[in-house]
């Protein structure tokens, strides 16, 4: 069975090619400046963390990191609440105009963020929220909420209606049913939402570029962009900054690969 081995070998080559840009970046970030004359695929002969320290402290990446973390965590947490509440109403509560609402949320799946950033900037400004994390969070939530409303909706539809009925007969309010009965069994949807919204929020550049202009408010994406603009030749600094930005999501991905894969295929329209 040579065929199997040829196949495995070809896939191995593809895997190495796919992984190499990341591996080379890590290599460079760990090299002492004297080793930069070596070809990029040489592993560092002696490992140094000085570039990380430099970028983290002088480069301002510690602030960028915690700004990014703050926005992403709040984004993910609030998204779980608002999207699941809305989806709960769409599935379990009878009211008029449900179809219209469904169509309204559907429109959200079709709006490319890129196309509406100009008026979005104006609205955030008119609320006095330019240069605030709150403004970015609101914009993030608005632009992704429909994806997650549909994600929760499709999960809730699979929950037996009898469960909801039984709780109603026991005299529970809708909110109690939501809290005590439905949400505890919706954990897979909660995890997917948290991971995906965190990821999108962590990675975005455009909205942050537009809405955060003061350096102390900036996120990793904008910080890295500016660093790249001013320190074009600082290869080790740039690669350290890139690794700092990539590491949290890479770790999350390695731990929750299956959730990510499911979420990304479901939320792929965004």
């Amino acid at each position: 069975m040579y065929g199997r081995w040829i196949l495995l070998f070809a896939l191995g080559v593809i895997a190495v090619l796919m992984a190499s840009p990341l591996i080379l970046t890590v290599f460079t970030s760990l090299k002492p400046s004297t080793e930069l004359v070596n070809p990029a695929w040489y592993p560092p002969l002696s490992v140094t963390f000085e570039h990380y320290v430099r970028v983290w402290t002088d480069g301002g990446f510690s602030r960028y990191f915690f700004n990014t973390l703050l926005i992403s965590v709040i984004d993910a947490a609030v998204m779980i609440v608002i999207a699941s509440l809305a989806a709960y109403a769409m599935v379990f509560i009878e009211f008029r105009g449900k179809l219209a609402l469904q169509i309204l949320f559907l429109i959200g799946l079709m709006i490319p963020v890129t196309a509406i950033v100009l008026p979005l900037f104006q609205i955030v400004r008119s609320f006095g929220l330019l240069n605030t994390h709150f403004g970015v969070i609101l914009a993030d939530l608005a632009l992704a909420v429909s994806v997650f409303v549909f994600m929760f909706t499709s999960y809730f539809v699979g929950v037996p209606k009898a469960l909801h009925e039984a709780a109603r007969i026991d005299g529970a309010t809708e909110f109690q049913i939501y809290r005590r009965v439905i949400m505890p069994i919706a954990m897979p949807a909660v995890v997917t939402t948290a991971l995906l919204e965190f990821l999108w929020s962590w990675n975005d550049l455009l909205l942050r570029l537009l809405l955060l202009t003061q350096d102390e408010m900036r996120t990793l994406s904008v910080g890295l962009l500016n660093f790249q603009g001013t320190m074009t030749r600082d290869v080790t600094g740039l690669s350290s900054g890139t690794v700092i930005m990539a590491i949290p999501v890479v770790i999350l991905f390695l731990f929750f690969q299956r959730h990510f894969v499911r979420g990304m295929t479901a939320g792929a329209v965004k």
Binding site: M18, A19, P21, L22, L199, W202, N203, D204, L205, L220, S221, L224, L225, M245, A246, V249, V250, L252, F253, F260, M264
Partner: peptide, 8 residues
């Protein structure tokens, strides 16, 4: 893995 890496 590259799918989760930020475009930046």
């Amino acid at each position: 893995l590259p799918v989760v890496i930020s475009p930046m």
